[in-house]
């Protein structure tokens, strides 16, 4: 019994004594990459989900509870993208710092403008998000808003390093604006191009680039395509000059492949997050790869 108590006490102590870095847990890898840029060596960051998974349905592994237990800050995408997996993990983590309503939580969706906010809600429309489309990070102009919100949050929780966070964020932004100019210029030739996407995950990107969305492979969000829906897409294709089908890495691609080969439309796999495809190890590489895939043949 004595030994057990000593072991337990030492676990408690080692958990807190070596915690001079800020423990930041993020739900998705893209957030972790931005935190790394802003926090650098002052933070220890961990992303729960992997970039190759469907962001709506993450398997809530118990190891995530251990990460949340030690978190000083939890940064989430918000707009109900995590509603299907995160709340029970937060409850089980027994960490008073990251409960809803405490300063330890940052909801990024509150710092950007959401599009496609539905006026009427029914689950007959599929997996609808009442607050609007949650995939806002794929608009590359939203990234500076996100990094600035992160810098403010890190400064609020760790005021001693406020100047460092601001400095890091400014350095990041300078770099980022440079890249953003290159991406905008490269994508300019796509303006007005008609595309189909699998799920409404690229809508923010399409708006930014000026791509015109004429249909989705899913009849409604979260529901796989039916043959009738594919027929209606074929009608759209025959009366529109659809150039590309955009598909994520996690949905089955048979419907997209069928339409692609039958109507001779290029199928493009577009990574939605870091790690979805190779060569997307940070936020810069993610957009480099998205741009490369969009403009490439």
């Amino acid at each position: 019994m004595k030994n057990i108590i000593i072991i337990l006490i030492s676990i408690i102590l080692t958990g807190s004594v070596f915690a001079d870095e800020l423990n930041v847990v993020t739900t998705y890898p893209y957030i972790a990459s931005i935190v790394e840029q802003v926090g650098k060596d002052k933070v220890n960051v961990f992303a729960l989900a992997k970039g190759e998974w469907d962001p709506h349905t993450i398997i809530p592994k118990p190891s995530f509870i251990a990460k949340l237990r030690k978190a000083d800050i939890l940064i989430l995408n918000g707009a109900q993208l995590e509603i299907g997996w995160l709340p029970p993990l937060m409850r089980q983590a027994n960490n008073s710092k990251i409960q809803v309503g405490t300063p330890g939580i940052l909801d990024l969706s509150k710092h950007v403008e959401l599009i496609e906010v539905p006026t009427a809600i029914s689950r007959a429309q599929g997996d609808v998000h009442p607050d609007g489309n949650p995939h806002f990070h794929l608009d590359f102009k939203n990234i500076p808003k996100i990094s600035t919100a992160i810098a403010h949050k890190l400064s609020e929780i760790d005021p001693v390093n406020k100047a460092t966070y601001e400095q890091n964020n400014n350095a990041f932004l300078e770099n980022y604006y440079q890249k953003e100019k290159e991406w905008t210029a490269a994508l300019e030739k796509l303006r007005g191009t008609k595309v189909i996407e699998y799920h409404k995950i690229y809508d923010y990107l399409l708006r930014r680039v000026g791509l015109q969305l004429v249909g989705t492979i899913e009849p409604v969000p979260g529901i796989s395509p039916t043959s009738r829906h594919i027929e209606s897409l074929e009608k759209i294709i025959s009366s529109n000059d659809v150039k590309y089908i955009l598909q994520d890495v996690y949905h089955p691609d048979d419907a997209s492949k069928y339409l692609s080969s039958k109507h001779n439309i290029k199928l493009k796999i577009i990574p939605h997050d870091i790690g979805a495809v190779s060569n997307t190890n940070n936020i810069f590489e993610l957009f480099n790869e998205i741009v490369r895939r969009l403009i490439g043949d």
Partner: peptide, 12 residues
Amino acid sequence: INWVAPTDFYLM
């Protein structure tokens, strides 16, 4: 009453 240990793996 339950307690989650501050370990890198999950321990409760």
